[in-house]
Write a protein that binds this DNA or RNA. Structure first.
Lengths: 340, 340
DNA sequence: GAAGAGTACGAAAACGATTTCGTAATTAAA
DNA sequence: TTTAATTACGAAATCGTTTTCGTACTCTTC
């Protein structure tokens, strides 16, 4: 009585195990009457198939993994929401793995997932581009995966990203038109694709408007919180005249706000700042933060859709087509933090 | 070559499958030399045991589920971080399920998990207290679970909560001492344990300070965004004199900020507000938001620890002891939004 | 009415691990 | 030297499904 299984169900019905299994899967081999009986008793006895037996036999787990640098982050939470919306619909399960921005951790996670625990993986890379071995192993094992936001462009895998270059250009242009004289790009690391594209857009805009190179500052704050605070603080003392900051990630913009409060820098008077961000409170900050906002939910949805398509096509001959490379648009919200 | 398994490994080593399995599990039956050989070849051929075969046989999945109302929420993200920190250490996998605050969805998820896919479940309930059947089924099936933050107090399961009553009292007392005359409690629903405890603390404080009943407002905003905006807006027009709002959740406080901005209510001059919140930008808002902040990461950690303890003790005779009921303290941060 | 097709089911072999039980070979004890 | 115990391994059952293959039986069709 403890656990219902197909064998007990079959015995109860005076049918064979195979017949019951087929009936439960609505096989054409089984006549309607029998199916009904089986379904009825299964429901009555609350039978639920053992997922591991099923996965073992079918060699598919109905599970995907999401590998992200961090979760306490509006962007990634929203992406997960998008992913979940699709997974839920397709009755897939979602495993979450957090790398804490540590490339080795990511490697370890991906390597573990080679064992077949999941049917596919959604990755926002924490790694530097010089370590791709684990991705290649995924390819070799035939495990579908899709990059989102932070992709590795050396790997042939579907990608869902945003128009980072254009957005970077646009944000910087906005700073220039807001009469900034000095320009700083706040970056986590120079190893992340999305962030580098933002930087390229930043530099391109400055070049187009012929900003002198010594008015251009690249600040690599890194992923350690205490350290990045220090680095940002140092780079704002002394404060260059008419400073305009383009922060590539929300976290660094928030840190900058804290620092400005601490050392009495007035935004937007002395310093203007715009940031990539999905903060729901951006408009409520003091001053309201100008943002480039990524369609995080859609990114999650699109990435999941690509992954499930990939899973579905697995084994079949792939048409020789270009790799899916979805690029979504970010939206510029101009607020007080960049007011003239 | 495609997929390594224990059979191929055994053949390669001229050993039996059982010997290899035992060697891999460091069984005393196998001599050191053999173990070394097995380990070496396993590593070389990159052998990884099939998790489903293993789970099927051992009847344990090394996986837990986290069932939460929503994920794009600072509190829950931080909790997940805490959970992950423990799960990662114990080499457990974490499945995420989102109920979107829909009790039926939660039921459906929990019912699905009765099939043994996970070894245990961490739940922050979305349900009303009048539907407990699915929890009882978990108990009956012997699947360990732990409530966090939003518990169901009718169910005998370990809980990790915060001192909601005291915090509610404290927050309200603070509003009273900030010379508010009217008091409003902003609630999602009257069915959630944690929120009701906060309300009880709110009411108790008002009673102790002999606030007239007609100066006390309970606003149930619900979980629908558009609707809750409307409800809050309506309750602020006309604005009672010296209004003090205690928001039971972050989201409603943010909505209130937006509404105040929209209809030109000055915080803290015309309206003071304090909220439960884990917003990293609380101090940067205009004005800075006074908060009660829950130790979200610790809640996740403690809940996970309780769950793993529960999983470990499963099957063993439980000592007749009181149920684990961890209560953590929230911290009050007084900021400008409640300034006199 | 014989051959072929279709229907509805069952027996048994997978899937890949773990675990129980049995047993040769060696060592220790009597 | 015999017996008992220990060591180190292997055969086979098992976990609960799914799926292949086989086969009675009925129904057409000529």
């Amino acid at each position: 009585m403890e656990n219902m299984n197909i064998k007990k169900l079959a015995k109860e019905l005076n049918l064979s195990v195979s017949t019951v299994s087929k009936a439960l899967h609505d096989s054409y081999e089984i006549k309607a009457e029998t199916k009904e009986k089986v379904l009825a008793l299964a429901k009555q006895l609350n039978y639920q198939p053992n997922p591991f037996a099923s996965s073992l036999r079918r060699n598919s787990s109905k599970t995907i993994a999401v590998v992200i640098p961090e979760i306490a982050h509006n962007f990634f939470s929203l992406v997960i929401n998008g992913i979940e919306s699709i997974a839920e619909e397709l009755k897939y399960h979602v495993l979450i793995y957090i790398t804490h921005e540590i490339p080795e951790k990511e490697e370890q996670i991906i390597r573990h997932l080679l064992n077949g625990r999941v049917d596919g993986i959604l990755i926002s890379s924490s790694g530097s581009s010089n370590n791709n071995a684990h991705y290649h192993e995924l390819v070799q094992k035939g495990i579908p995966f899709v990059f989102f936001d932070r992709a590795n462009f050396d790997i042939d895998a579907p990608r869902v990203t945003t128009d980072d270059y254009q957005a970077g250009f646009q944000a910087t242009e906005h700073l220039i038109k807001s009469q900034c004289k000095h320009f700083a790009f706040l970056s986590l690391s120079s190893q992340m694709s999305a962030i580098n594209h933002r930087k390229d857009g930043f530099l391109a805009a400055l070049k187009q408007y012929q900003i002198q190179p010594d008015h251009i500052h690249i600040i690599e704050a890194g992923t350690d919180e205490t350290l990045s605070f220090q680095i940002i603080r140092d780079s704002l003392q002394p404060l260059p005249e008419s400073m305009g900051i383009f922060s590539s990630v929300e976290k660094l913009a928030i840190q900058t706000y804290h620092i400005c409060k601490e050392i009495n820098i007035r935004i937007p008077k002395q310093l203007k700042i715009i940031s990539f961000s999905n903060l729901p409170t951006a408009a409520l900050l003091n001053p309201a933060l100008s943002t480039l906002t990524q369609p995080a939910f859609s990114i999650g949805k699109e990435a999941a859709l690509l992954l499930f398509q990939s899973i579905k096509n697995k084994g079949k001959i792939q048409p020789i087509t270009t790799l899916p490379n979805v690029v979504l648009k970010s939206t510029l919200f101009i607020r007080e933090s960049t007011k003239i």
